[in-house]
Nucleic acid binder design. Structure first.
Lengths: 219, 219
DNA sequence: AGCACAATTCAACGCATGATGAATAACGTC
DNA sequence: GACGTTATTCATCATGCGTTGAATTGTGCT
């Protein structure tokens, strides 16, 4: 994969001839590494090597490692614009529309790598200031509040998010087969009803546990 | 939190008097750190400091950092025994029984920390040999194969796992409120039906998209 | 009392990392 | 063709890490 072709050839320092998009190659290498190994396990030296370039050049283009991370994180979609559109047409079918939006974003390679980078790096560390937490809260949760009954919006949407983040984990992080290769339409058929139920099913009662369930494992 | 009391007091090396369970305190500190920051971001020096102890002592009790990690990972339940019990009584209500088992394990503090450590550390890195992948496959997926139709077992169970891992992420890693504090019974009422549907709902047809859904966002 | 053993610390090594600053070669422009 | 600018490398620093080995002191056995 190492991108550069005639890169680390001759002796001496100074500018090297060819490569017209070195900056781009560095960014691509960084994205791959952040997406695959997270922030902590990514080393600037490895990124540089992968781009066929001296580590100092990485610092020349992007500043610190944090800056590089932020640069690699640019996500080509804005949830704050797209998510409300899903709910504009009302709750009916919103589950399916939301899931289709979710899948279209995650199946897009340009969006997938930065998202993976964000998720992998965020789940590694604890703390309220985690980027992912803020991202979910302000990019997805906030813009939806208005579309649902005020006092139920949060927990309904978080159930939705729980199912979607579960897909992220199993399908895109762990790549469990056959789930990871399941066609989009099949996935929609399976999980859209789940999301729809979380969105508009009546609040569950503190139901009498009469139905069929034994006391499972408790303790 | 730093566990040791009269620990780093006087001068000189040699054995210190009191603390009867230094080893235990080290292990506890290690668990907290691994669970909170994952493997990579956990430093032996920090663990030692947190236990009020010299880093070399960590190596004295547990060997390398890997060994310490494995020691911190001891999970007091064996899914290979418990999971099949869920399916012994048949598929009816298995969703709820499985979810209750899942919750009872994750709500147990003795199990939660090692599990968090495993999850946090595994999601940080790519690769087939990831402990978590292996764990899920062999601890959960394998023992269940026999309880479902052979050709559907894998994708049905992986859908189940997707919802459960989504709960892990939102409830235990990100601690999204109010989901994180939702009472067990409410959670069961909301998501047990989801699991049950993944387990025994008829295979979705390549249905005509006539119902209510527009073409969402594509591309 | 003496002695083996376990617990604990100290000091240090070797290594990889992020970062910096100066040196050099190619490029674009007049 | 001279010149400022940009791209690139080299050499190096300080830091923090995992790990090791020896030194020291307390504990328990006989």
């Amino acid at each position: 994969m190492t991108a550069a072709d005639g890169a680390p050839a001759g002796r001496g320092r100074g500018r090297r001839p060819g490569g017209p998009d070195t900056r781009g190659q560095i960014l691509a290498a960084a994205r791959h590494s952040f997406a695959g190994k997270g922030f902590g396990a990514t080393t600037i030296r490895a990124v540089a090597a992968d781009a066929g370039v001296d580590p100092a050049l990485v610092h020349h283009y992007f500043g610190s490692k944090d800056d590089l991370f932020l640069a690699a994180l640019e996500i080509p979609v804005d949830p704050r614009r797209l998510v409300p559109q899903v709910f504009e047409a009302g709750l009916d079918g919103a589950g399916e529309r939301l899931l289709r939006l979710f899948l279209s974003v995650w199946e897009d390679p340009h969006a997938r790598l930065p998202l993976l980078a964000l998720v992998r790096s965020s789940l590694g560390r604890e703390g309220d200031e985690s980027l992912l937490r803020q991202g979910i809260l302000r990019m997805i949760l906030e813009p939806i509040r208005s579309a649902l009954p005020t006092d139920e919006a949060d927990h309904r949407m978080q159930l939705v998010i729980s199912q979607m983040s579960g897909l992220v984990v199993t399908r895109y992080l762990l790549v469990l087969e056959p789930l990871a290769s399941m066609p989009r339409e099949d996935l929609v058929a399976w999980v859209a009803p789940t999301l729809q139920r979380y969105l508009d099913a009546p609040l569950p009662r503190e139901r009498g546990v009469a139905s069929s369930a034994g006391p499972g494992a408790s303790g």
